[in-house]
């Protein structure tokens, strides 16, 4: 069986997004990595993907994908999969790639494993590591011949450099069926956020319902600013309308992996932990000594976030001065 691993490289403003480059590096360490790039500018990006591990790049330079990626990408990929039968399709877990995976699974009758944190070949067999709940981790595989899909957990891998690698490039042409263009984008609204992006921040200070009210959230922002980090939030306070969705960390929000994560007034529900427990150091402040957040904290303070946060901000500023 082939060891060809395909990675769909997602573009944002014409540039590959970080998560897909991370996956490409993993693919290159596992076998022969081949990248698929779809969208305006794909031809220009194709040669640069060698440096991230691609030995071959399929590029379709067509703006149809930029409008709405899912359906046209499924059409193109499905045809390519039938033609070339790669061993594995390795995809980052992003909004669009998840939608694409679901349809490909059906259209090409593929086995699909989600939320992988690692994978390796053992002989001919692919072994995928998947955390299940807080306590267990399972090893799963695709037992059948032919291609399979694995979706990887955000931040599971880091970007790898492959200096001097020049990929073979295959240019794709052709149009799309009417069904592949069934969805129209009417408008696009960016919600501006200040400071470093959560995904890239090395320090994150997050607040939860324990802050009491929206007006107290500035205490989190001030500590984040003092530490040179980004402010984050639980779903509880995003749902309550204190902050936009872009602040949400957790299973249905962002997955982050900073060096330091400070959780203030956060209970530590499993869905929140799913997005942040990969942090190197976790400091938690909570009034309730039984709060589950303390089970992942390196330093836990049983106390009132409303008094401790401003004291800590002042102390950080003093020591940094």
């Amino acid at each position: 069986m082939s060891n060809i691993i395909w990675v769909l490289v997602e573009l944002e403003n014409g540039q590959p997004v970080r998560s897909t480059l991370e996956v490409l590096g993993k693919a290159a360490k596992l076998g022969r990595a081949e990248a698929i790039v779809l969208g305006a500018g794909a031809a220009a990006i194709a040669p640069t993907l060698g440096a991230y591990g691609a030995e071959k790049v399929y590029a379709h330079d067509d703006a149809t994908y930029d409008n709405y990626l899912t359906l046209p990408a499924v059409e193109t990929l499905s045809t390519l999969i039938n033609e070339h039968q790669p061993r594995l399709l390795l995809l980052a877990t992003t909004y669009d790639l998840r939608d694409i995976a679901a349809r490909l699974m059906v259209r090409n009758n593929l086995g699909l494993i989600t939320d992988a944190t690692d994978l390796a070949f053992e002989g001919e067999e692919i072994r995928v590591t998947v955390p299940w709940g807080g306590e267990n981790v399972v090893t799963a595989t695709h037992p059948y011949q032919g291609p399979g899909i694995v979706l990887t957990r955000p931040k599971a891998f880091s970007i790898e450099q492959f200096e001097g690698r020049t990929p073979e490039i295959e240019t794709l042409n052709g149009g799309f069926s009417a069904e592949a263009q069934a969805i129209k984008v009417i408008d696009s609204v960016e919600v501006a956020s200040e400071g470093p992006a959560l995904e890239d921040a090395s320090v994150i200070v997050s607040g939860g319902r324990g802050l009491g009210k929206a007006e107290n959230y500035h205490l989190v922002e001030e500590l984040a600013a003092a530490l040179g980090g980004a402010p984050g939030a639980t779903r509880a306070i995003v749902d309550a309308g204190w902050l936009p969705y872009s602040y949400q960390i957790g299973q249905t929000g962002k997955t982050v992996k900073p060096t330091l994560y400070v959780a203030a007034g956060i209970s530590g529900a499993i869905q929140h932990l799913a997005g942040m427990k990969g942090a190197k150091y976790i400091v938690a402040i909570n009034k309730d000594e039984n709060a589950p957040i303390f089970s992942v904290a390196d330093l836990g303070i049983v106390g009132d976030a409303l008094t401790i946060l401003p004291q800590l901000t002042a102390e950080v500023k003093r020591r940094k001065a």
Partner: peptide, 21 residues
Amino acid sequence: RERVLAVGQAEARAAGQIVKD
């Protein structure tokens, strides 16, 4: 179309220090 081969224990985070303010 997938098979679970083995179930293991997740690596627990080393217990931290919890102190009252």
